[in-house]
Design a protein around this nucleic acid. Sequence first.
DNA 1: TAGGAAATACCACAATAGGGGGAGCGACAA
DNA 2: TTGTCGCTCCCCCTATTGTGGTATTTCCTA
Lengths: 217, 217
Amino acid sequence: MENIRVAIFEDNKHLRESLYYLINGTPGFSCTGAYPDCNDAVFQITKDTPDVILMDIEMPGLNGIQGVKLIKSKFPQVHVLMQTIFHDENNIFDAICAGASGYILKSTTPAEYITAIKDVYNGGSPMTGSIARKVLELFQKNIQVEAKKDYQLTPKEKEMLQFMVQGKSFKMIAEAAGISYETVRTHMKNIYAKLHVNSNTEAVSKVLKEKLLSIFF
Amino acid sequence: MENIRVAIFEDNKHLRESLYYLINGTPGFSCTGAYPDCNDAVFQITKDTPDVILMDIEMPGLNGIQGVKLIKSKFPQVHVLMQTIFHDENNIFDAICAGASGYILKSTTPAEYITAIKDVYNGGSPMTGSIARKVLELFQKNIQVEAKKDYQLTPKEKEMLQFMVQGKSFKMIAEAAGISYETVRTHMKNIYAKLHVNSNTEAVSKVLKEKLLSIFF
DNA sequence: TAGGAAATACCACAATAGGGGGAGCGACAA
DNA sequence: TTGTCGCTCCCCCTATTGTGGTATTTCCTA
């Protein structure tokens, strides 16, 4: 059987070396290189020709996400398996979008590492159940056609909100709209009551998330 | 420990009964019902109050996809674990859109069935590596991600912003993040400098418009 | 080992926002 | 004609935010 060629990008020296020995010590696997960062990834991958890359997310210099992006753009056939300490959901999303093929935790046992690598090599995408759930939820969220809620905002109130999402202060809005500062405040109070919020950030957030305004600029 | 209540919808009599005995024979699990189709699913679920539903895709009458859709619309809190023989990409997509929480193959071993049910119950989304890969591919295909500008925000700063877009005040963020109010303020100052803004609304607006944070929050 | 980056925390003062109230004016409809 | 609605403006007082500092700790790297 052909060896599965694995490259490691991991800044933690101890883990990097452990993985190196684990992979090289497992029949059917060989580690073509183990690097502390992916600043020279393109050169190293060109030289090593790995099938699977084990990529840490938290790294100095080019981080794991940027690394995946770079690698997938140059070597689309290579499968990248992300690994991280946390269920950092920000990163999970970014990694998936960047083209990662799987996502595992560093708490993974050696046997599971090997299984995950084999799985990725064979066209699978190993990931923990909780990560998979996040992906599904995101998927479902983006598919659904949301029914716009109607908060009965008046034209003037919508105008205020438009200035608000541009980051203007009440004073600036007053000037831009040609009305007094106190009137702006009155409108905002009414808006807060209608949107059931009690701060400008909440209002802006709600407006942008629920796409309450059609024209933003 | 509370039992995990499982209902089965599976037209194959042999598999249905096997699963029934498997679940009832496992401590911590009880099978509230095993049905050959989901034509009476609403009545049966109302009666059985299962936590998790094991749903076959290929069924006579109402098929699994339609079943999930129906069930999730009536009982949104119930988790549905799909099972199928094939890796049919269309079915996977439809099932996910219909609200399925997991997707396993019928070639799964009894132990893996139990693990998968437990995982779904605990908020995970178990799926085989190959199905996960399909999901990721669909994901990457369907959600175009525009090139994010990189403002070099640190993880902590992103965390602050996440709370910010939820409309939290500095005080609330401090409590939520377990750090002091003054530290929150320090982070915000640094964020403002990096984003070139000078108010919380501007920051929130920029974050949401430029999608600087993952959609997970 | 010196230096930087990240996270932590505090102080002081000015500026802005939030919550409560009241009130006038024009339009339009019952 | 009496309401109601939308828009306008003002006051008072408190809470929160913005801006400018300083400072310690930890971790990592040149």
